[in-house]
């Protein structure tokens, strides 16, 4: 009846309508949850941008923190609006990612994994150690919020949940489109190439390390902005926000959702966040549920949640074949 494209765009339109109405019908604390979900979506999609080049980094949470700290420090110590400091936070994160890429991309596989973790931990410990300017364990406080101030004409305080919800939604959508375009550009194809056919790509003159660095820096930029978005919303950040746990959550979201497709990590964040929210009553037991879901997914759906429909279809076909009997085999 409808073409596939037509159905897809109709679906997206419905989804957008729901997302736009949502902030007015949910409870306030659920609004916070949705805002963090949008920020986390930016985070995982930017992580996927790095991971499709074939290297799993464990520094993403700290790179995100670099963006948050940089943007917060700029607004706290200089007369700069958060509108300018947020992109600068992203640039700072990209810069740190670029510096880290020199030692890190000499390594591969597990060396890279652990190396990136160690490098990130060194940065995080610097935030703990150097109380001036980073504030130590207690972190930074009273970070200015975003505001739209056009004099008498218009004033919106983006520190409030509903306006910030729309801000996060719009920024998230724009970033998703940009990152989707990057992945489907020539760059994106090379990212895939250096993952799946590393040697072949190098033999036709692709500098694999250079492209990995580009992916790492680009992903770092978006993560940095996500970090700045966190900082200017909750107005207080500390090193604990960007520790190993946060990094492991990113990894869980990406891998449970499915690294293989663009939608996978997004699905991972949405599904796991909703599950997490619905078991809010369990409090300290929540990470164990995460762990359980993680293990079950890896055991039964190694390609992530996005492969669930395919798996179900396979199962249905298999059952159907059994019902038909072994007739085709006897021919």
């Amino acid at each position: 009846m409808f073409s596939r494209a037509g159905r897809n765009s109709a679906g997206i339109a419905v989804l957008l309508a729901v997302v736009c109405i949502l902030p007015f019908i949910v409870r306030p604390y659920q609004l916070d949850f949705l805002i963090f979900m949008f920020i986390n979506i930016i985070l995982v999609v930017s992580y996927r941008l790095i991971a499709i080049t074939g290297e799993f980094s464990l520094s993403h949470a700290v790179i995100m923190g670099v963006g948050g700290y940089a943007s917060a420090l700029l607004t706290l110590h200089l007369p700069i609006s958060a509108w300018i400091s947020m992109p600068l936070g992203g640039v700072a994160a990209a810069l740190i990612a670029y510096i880290l890429s020199f030692p890190l991309f000499r390594m591969k596989g597990f060396y890279f994994l652990i190396g990136s973790f160690a490098a990130a931990e060194a940065i995080r410990l610097c935030w703990v150690q150097f109380i001036n300017p980073f504030g130590g364990y207690r972190g930074l406080r009273q970070i200015p919020v975003l505001e739209i101030d056009l004099g008498d004409f218009l004033y919106i305080d983006l520190g409030a949940p509903v306006p910030y919800y729309f801000f996060a939604l719009i920024v998230g959508l724009i970033f998703l489109v940009i990152m989707y375009r990057i992945e489907h550009s020539r760059f994106g194809f090379v990212f895939h190439a250096v993952h799946h056919k590393d040697m072949l790509a190098q033999s036709v003159g692709v500098n694999a390390r250079r492209y990995r660095t580009i992916a790492f820096v680009t992903g770092g930029f978006f993560a940095g902005i996500a970090g700045a978005m966190v900082a200017h919303y909750i107005t207080a950040i500390n090193p604990g926000l960007f520790g190993l746990k946060q990094m492991l959550f990113i990894l869980v979201w990406v891998l449970v959702g499915g690294l293989g497709s663009f939608a996978g990590p997004i699905l991972g964040v949405v599904v796991l966040s909703i599950i997490d929210e619905s078991i809010r009553g369990l409090n300290e037991l929540r990470p164990a549920f995460y762990g359980l879901i993680l293990i079950i997914t890896m055991l039964f759906l190694p390609d992530g949640l996005v492969s669930l429909p395919d798996k179900v279809m396979q199962g249905v076909n298999w059952l159907r074949k059994r019902e038909d009997g072994d007739a085709p085999n006897r021919e």
Binding site: F56, G109, L113, L251, L255, E284, G291, L294, L299, P302
Partner: peptide
């Protein structure tokens, strides 16, 4: 079950880490 899956073992061990920590808190 994760043999041959390069990051599978790492991921399930992360899951185990969560479970053991929560179990001890509980």
């Amino acid at each position: 079950p994760m043999r041959g899956n390069l990051f599978g073992g790492l991921i399930v061990s992360v899951g185990m880490l969560f479970i053991l920590e929560v179990l001890s808190v509980y």
